[in-house]
Amino acid sequence: MTREILRRLELLNQLSLTEEEKESVMAFFDAREADAACLESIDTSEVERMVHVMPIMTVVREDVVSQPYSREELQRSAPETDEGYWCVPRVVE
């Protein structure tokens, strides 16, 4: 784990870490990388990819429309709405 990679991850996750947090996150990632390296040393070329840890497949639903929620209900916890829209900090100049 390098400072450079951490900076990139901070940016992608929209995070701003303190110096202390950075140290702890880097130590955490180094440990996980060591775990991954250990796993990667095993030859899995003959092993079929596991799609999920549980042997459960999804259930599907039929293509039927229903609309049980009102907009007012959904937007009740929104910090700001306007003319039926959710409002967020402006994202373009």
């Binding site: 259930v59 609309q67 829209y85």
Partner: peptide
């Protein structure tokens, strides 16, 4: 009208689970 075809799942409310449309 905006946000009239919306539910907790497609507006990203926490804890909502997706159910796959067979079609």
């Amino acid at each position: 009208e905006p946000n009239t075809h919306v539910c907790p799942a497609c507006s990203g409310m926490p804890g909502m689970l997706p159910v796959v449309n067979k079609r």
